[in-house]
Simulated assay, not measured.
Amino acid sequence: MNHLNVSKESAAFWRVSISNPPVNLVNSRFIIDMHELLDAAEADSDLKVIVFESANPDYFLAHWDLTDDMSLLADHPEPGAGPKFPFAFMDMVVRLSKLPALTITSLRGRARGAGSEFVLATDITFASRERTLIGQFEMTAMAPPGGGAPSRLARLIGRNRALEVLIGAEDFTGPQAELYGYVNRAVPDDELDEFVTAFANRVARFDRTSLIQLKQWVNEITLPEDNELQPQGEAFGEALSRPAFQNWVTEAFARGLQQPGELEENLGAKVPLSTQPE
Rank of each mutant, 00 (worst) to 15 (best):
A149N: 05
F195R: 01
Q213L: 13
Q176I: 01
Q136D: 12
L107F: 06
V94Q: 08
R161M: 11
N5H: 14
A186L: 02
P243H: 09
E220C: 10
A186E: 00
S54A: 09
G115N: 04
N247K: 12
V249E: 08
P57L: 07
R159I: 11
D68I: 05
L211K: 06
V49H: 00
T173M: 03
I32R: 03
T250L: 09
M34Q: 10
R155Q: 08
L66R: 12
H35M: 12
G168M: 00
K8F: 03
L37R: 02
I221N: 07
G158P: 00
N160R: 14
N219G: 08
S45D: 14
F118S: 05
L179A: 14
T105V: 15
V16T: 03
A11I: 05
A149C: 07
G146A: 05
F199A: 11
A88G: 13
L223G: 07
A169H: 02
I167P: 04
R159F: 09
D226S: 12
N219R: 13
D193V: 11
L267A: 14
L66F: 13
S10T: 06
E117R: 09
G261A: 07
F87Q: 13
L120E: 15
V94S: 08
V187S: 02
R152T: 03
N56T: 08
F126W: 07
D193W: 04
P57K: 10
T132G: 03
R95M: 09
R202G: 13
D65F: 13
I32H: 02
Q230P: 06
S116C: 15
N24V: 08
D39N: 08
S106V: 05
A239C: 08
V94G: 05
S128M: 04
D39Y: 03
M1R: 03
W217D: 12
I134P: 00
